[in-house]
């Protein structure tokens, strides 16, 4: 057996990898569920029920998907231009810090003015945080994988300092958390009485906007060209460095919106456990989506459903919820393998 390249894969073949990856991850999870003493069908049933089985569950899944859509988009836009941004986690916190600083009384404005300003300044903070590594890459050739990854740890320690120091809530009984946001700085719920905030709508709008940018604007054309072949882009007269920097700003800004949306929409204050690794999970989301903005929405919903469903399943059946992490990890690994199948076919001799 060997692999033969496929010159022009069909659409069906292109959609095959995500399907195979998800199926494969279910198989791996089944095996583990058996080992843990559960019936795989019961486990999956409980996961599905826990994720979408009730109005509460569904809303919880949508809430959980919201930050993942933002970080997934951030990673997708950067990776498409071959800018390897592993720092969505830090950029998320940059947006969260700005929201906590400006939303707790510094700007006494009405929501209609305050919320857009918070979102924009949060984006700016995330954008600037990625601009540094991007400049180091374009000017000095420093590997952005290393700089963005390490910046995550530095920035998290910085947030820790803020929460123990200047941003510490005096009424917080010694907990490392910021003061609560003003009511004017909170993203309202989309429908009264339903626990789903406007951050989710903003995430959907961002995905559509990024899709439009990619396909309809010169910037999208340039970002794709630089990602595919920077040498040809430069020869054709594209300002490659400037495009790289614009990509970085866009990516960092999108990741920061996750932080804004979590603090303003969901939590109401900044804590160190704001993100259980949404920045890193965003990489999985983007890869599962094959870097397509609308695919990111689907992938984020899938990932969020697994997490939310696994929690509920664990409570009901006693099978550890770590099974969710393993499902995602195996889905990602199988995705990488399955992508091969879009480019090659297996030939049996």
């Amino acid at each position: 057996m060997r692999l033969e390249p496929i010159p022009d894969p069909s659409l069906a073949r292109k959609l095959l990898p995500p399907a195979l990856a998800i199926l494969g991850s279910f198989l791996v999870a089944s095996l583990l569920a058996l080992i843990a003493g559960g019936n795989p069908l019961a486990v999956f049933g409980a996961i599905v029920k826990g994720a979408v089985g009730s109005k509460f569950a569904l809303l919880e899944t949508l809430n959980r998907a919201t930050p993942l859509i933002f970080t997934g988009l951030a990673v997708a836009v950067a990776f498409r231009a071959k800018l390897w941004n592993i720092g969505a986690e830090a950029q998320l916190y940059a947006g969260a810090v700005v929201t906590a600083v400006l939303g707790t009384g510094l700007l006494p404005w009405p929501p209609a003015l305050l919320l857009p300003v918070l979102a924009l300044v949060a984006m700016l903070a995330g954008a600037l945080l990625l601009l540094g590594p991007a400049l180091l890459k374009t000017r000095l050739g420093v590997d952005e994988v290393v700089t963005t990854l390490l910046l995550n740890y530095i920035f998290l320690l910085f947030v820790s300092y803020l929460l123990e120091g200047p941003l510490k809530d005096p009424m917080g009984m010694g907990w490392p958390k910021s003061a609560r946001l003003l009511a004017e700085a909170r993203l309202p719920r989309i429908v009264d009485g339903l626990r789903l905030h406007w951050g989710f709508a903003l995430a959907l709008i961002s995905a559509v906007a990024l899709w439009v940018i990619n396909t309809r604007t010169t910037l999208g054309f340039e970002m794709r060209a630089v990602g595919q072949n920077a040498e040809a882009a430069r020869f054709a007269g594209m300002p490659v460095t400037r495009i790289m920097l614009k990509t970085a700003l866009l990516s960092g800004g999108l990741a920061a919106l996750a932080g804004f949306s979590e603090v303003s929409g969901l939590k109401g204050s900044l804590t160190l456990d704001l993100s259980p690794g949404y920045g890193y999970t965003g990489i999985v989301v983007a890869m599962l989506a094959l870097l397509h903005p609308l695919g990111v929405v689907a992938a984020a919903l899938f990932v969020a459903a697994i997490f939310v469903g696994a929690d509920a399943m664990s409570r009901a059946l006693g099978v550890p919820s770590y099974i969710a992490d393993i499902m995602l990890a195996s889905a990602l690994l199988m995705m990488v393998l399955a992508i091969l199948l879009t480019k090659f076919r297996v030939v049996r001799d």
């Binding site: 054309f221 060209a225 595919q228 040809a232 882009a233 020869f235 007269g237």
Partner: peptide, 17 residues
């Protein structure tokens, strides 16, 4: 490698410059 972007279609390559 310099004149065209392999995975772009003819339209995109035609207007690259």
């Amino acid at each position: 490698h310099t004149g065209t972007i392999a995975d772009f279609d003819l339209t995109e390559n035609a207007v690259l410059e």
